[in-house]
């Protein structure tokens, strides 16, 4: 039969160890404090989307299908920040303004709808998996940035995109134009800047549609099978 005094001593040891573990855990949690950020109390960012506002004219012609690749963003233009190009090749982002999603996805979705509607060609993106296409349209974004001027009236948005149309069947380069647009920003606020981005994207999509429409036949599945 064990001694009651000895049992009491063991219970105290267990409690002491538990207290030690709790203390250590609290200390480690306190040490991790700098690692965990819950954000500051500053004003919330304005989040904007980039959507094609025109009619979504989806042609019923299934003969010509072009797969639009994920755009390759140049010079750190990707992400949700709105890129700003300053003088002396300085780069930064716009404070308090950001995209609703990665600019890569926004640009791709915009072109799929806009160029498809303006060229009468069926363009497919990431969601159209397992669909056989005649060509693939590579998109390289050289400029997609807000460029502040000397005064508010001189602010503008520059967009420059290089398209590469390649036929799947023989890997032939059908066309590779570089289109650019520069849109004036009417007022120095987030809404007008985003509107300038929309204006530039609309103009580039219109030019891309005019370029793609006459050569889309090269991507017809019949031609691709030759």
């Amino acid at each position: 039969m064990e001694n009651p005094t000895r049992q009491l001593t063991n219970s105290n040891r267990v409690q002491s160890v538990r207290a030690l573990f709790v203390g250590a855990a609290a200390l480690m949690l306190a040490g991790c404090g700098p690692l965990i950020s819950f954000g500051d109390d500053g004003p919330a960012d304005d989040v904007f989307s980039l959507e094609y506002d025109g009619a979504n004219v989806n042609t019923s012609d299934m003969a010509t299908i072009i797969y639009v690749e994920e755009p390759l963003m140049s010079d750190g233009l990707g992400g949700v920040d709105v890129a700003v190009a300053l003088e002396n090749r300085k780069r930064t982002s716009l404070q308090g303004v950001r995209w609703s999603s990665s600019s890569t996805d926004l640009i791709r979705d915009y072109f799929i709808r806009a160029i498809g509607s303006m060229s009468g060609t069926r363009l497919l993106g990431q969601g159209a998996i397992d669909v056989r296409a005649g060509c693939r349209l590579g998109v390289k974004v050289w400029a997609f940035e807000f460029v502040p001027g000397a005064s508010a009236g001189d602010d503008r948005v520059d967009i420059e995109v290089e398209f590469t149309l390649v036929r799947y069947n023989d890997n032939r380069l059908i066309g590779q134009p570089t289109l650019s647009a520069s849109s004036q920003v009417s007022a120095a606020n987030g809404e007008e800047i985003i509107e300038a981005f929309h204006d530039g994207m609309t103009r580039i999509s219109r030019e891309a549609g005019q370029w793609l429409a006459p050569i889309a036949g090269e991507c017809a599945l019949a031609a691709a099978n030759e």
Binding site: L35, S37, V84, L86, K90, T92, S93, L94, Q95, G96, V97, F146, P148, A152, A188, N189, G190, I193
Partner: peptide, 18 residues
């Protein structure tokens, strides 16, 4: 990578980086 780099942002009101 975790906390982000210290980067000056462009303030539209001040028309300069902050």
């Amino acid at each position: 990578v975790i906390f982000g780099t210290k980067e000056a942002e462009y303030d539209l009101k001040k028309r300069s980086t902050v």
